[in-house]
Design a protein around this nucleic acid. Sequence first.
DNA 1: CACCGTCGATACATTGACGTATCGAATACA
DNA 2: TGTATTCGATACGTCAATGTATCGACGGTG
Lengths: 207, 207
Amino acid sequence: MQESATRRRASTRERLLDAAREVLADTGIQGATVEQICERAGYTRGAFYSNYASKDDLILDLFMREKDRMLIALRSAVEDKLEGGDIGSIAHVLDRFVTSQPTDRTWFLVHQEFVTHAVRQHRIADVYAELWEQTHREFGDVIDAACQALGRRLTIDLRDATRLLIAIFDATLRDAFLGSDADEADLTAMREQIPTLLLALSEPAER
Amino acid sequence: MQESATRRRASTRERLLDAAREVLADTGIQGATVEQICERAGYTRGAFYSNYASKDDLILDLFMREKDRMLIALRSAVEDKLEGGDIGSIAHVLDRFVTSQPTDRTWFLVHQEFVTHAVRQHRIADVYAELWEQTHREFGDVIDAACQALGRRLTIDLRDATRLLIAIFDATLRDAFLGSDADEADLTAMREQIPTLLLALSEPAER
DNA sequence: CACCGTCGATACATTGACGTATCGAATACA
DNA sequence: TGTATTCGATACGTCAATGTATCGACGGTG
């Protein structure tokens, strides 16, 4: 059977992708060399070229894996938050949702590269577009549900509200890592702002 | 005199920086080669090494020039808008201010590189910090003045409001360039949102 | 247990980017 | 106009990264 062979193959690919993620955060896509990636993964370049045709090939694979992982995490976070039924304050819902997102330096840098690369290359842009659309949908659902649970209705378009919150989230991460060399972003300020903002942008729902 | 000599020198540096800006937008900091930059500037590598010790050296110079240019443009835009005395609606003030900022693809990509680089390298981070702080101050002044002129008072911290608007601005650019390969970002949606947002986040000032 | 195929390591040739050293030309100054 | 200096071009050596080709080892299979 080729099962075991391909399983081994899948395993080394995982290790290569994990290593690529780290190296990429350190030195950027262009700065990362195949050798660095292999070294960190515990392989030599032979293993690499046995699995990927080029660095670009691996990058694309990494992007797709990142996208899938993010969406899975996002979706499970949404389900955790929404299906509990026991929704507390609007602060709690969004707060726990937001803090369930990865906020570490490596993640930020990888996705920063992701965006930049996507703006330049159309092949990547397609992958990103799907991630983007799904993220919007899931995030929008949470906001929507939170408002309903609190008996409020947005005074602006749900889509705009979603974009707004995502924008705040991204800017907060960026500012955090620009301002300090901590490994985790400090989100306390944002966690206070978001509920305030949502209250300001909604009104009691007529019933 | 050495005046003319240094003037010539300054001129080639300008051309090198202009070229670097474009190449950098195309291929990123790491991807850009000294040769590419020189070629686009109409020089050979000899001219480069006569002016800069390394690519990093030039990058730092470019960042400082970009920073200075941005702040000058920002400041003159603020003066234009505020000293007219004839402030129309809140939409007009912020609208004209926001649209006075550069919103082209090259600009976006260069500053995307800028941020990513600053997160990784502390020397760059210092330059960025100054840009960031000044931008905040200028932008905050505009918001403040706009509110006063309209007889409204923010219900949230001015600093938070500023961060909010900048976050929207940045996210709008990013989304625009991710979504299409246009050379100029479409800002119409944002230009409608911002006044709405500011109204929602302020109340009539007691007088 | 022996065979076969896959996977990863090693060695090699090639490319291209870098930085230096040297040369020629343009420009300033007497 | 002659001379000195500065700036940019050319040519070179060096080094690092790439991709390929080959070899050995390990694992599945009859």
